[in-house]
C-alpha cells in the first residue's frame, strides 16, 4: 500500500471516528442539559456569594467579627450543600423518569 493510500485511510478512520461521536450526541441531550444546569447553578451561587454574602461588612469588635465570618462561611457552605442536593435529586429523577418511560413503552408493546 502506498503512503498516500495509508494517509487517506488514516484520515478516513479519523473522520468516521469523529462522525460516530456526533451520531451518539443527540441521545445524550438530557444528560448534557443536566451537566450545563449543574454548571450554571454553580456559577449563579458564586455570583450570589460574591455580590451578596461577601458584602456583609467586617466588624471592628472581634467577637462580632467572628460571628459575621462564621455566618458568611455557614451560608456559603449551605448554598453549596443545596447545590449538591439539587444535583443529586435531579440526577436521580432523570434516571427514574427514563426508567418509567421505558417501562411504559415496554407495556405498550
Amino acid at each position: 500500500m502506498s503512503i498516500i493510500q495509508s494517509a487517506s485511510n488514516f484520515v478516513k478512520n479519523i473522520g468516521s471516528g469523529i462522525m460516530s461521536y456526533f451520531r451518539l450526541t443527540p441521545r445524550l441531550a438530557k444528560l448534557i442539559g443536566l451537566e450545563i444546569f449543574v454548571f450554571g447553578t454553580f456559577i449563579a451561587i458564586c455570583v450570589v456569594i460574591s455580590e451578596g454574602i461577601m458584602r456583609i461588612p467586617d466588624s471592628p469588635k472581634p467577637g462580632l467579627n467572628f460571628l459575621f465570618a462564621s455566618l458568611k462561611v455557614g451560608i456559603s457552605l449551605l448554598l453549596i450543600g443545596l447545590w449538591l442536593g439539587v444535583w443529586y435529586y435531579l440526577t436521580k429523577r432523570l434516571m427514574k423518569n427514563d426508567r418509567q418511560e421505558n417501562k411504559e413503552k415496554e407495556e405498550n408493546e
Partner: peptide, 28 residues
C-alpha cells in the same frame, strides 16, 4: 441506575459506543 443504564435506555449500544458516550459527556 447508572450512567450506562441511561445511555442504553432507548436502544442497545455496542460496548465501544457506550465508552464513546462517556467520552462525550466528559468532554462537555
Amino acid at each position: 441506575i447508572t450512567l450506562v443504564g441511561l445511555v442504553i435506555q432507548k436502544e442497545p449500544l455496542h460496548e465501544k459506543d457506550v465508552v464513546k458516550t462517556f467520552n462525550i459527556l466528559t468532554i462537555v
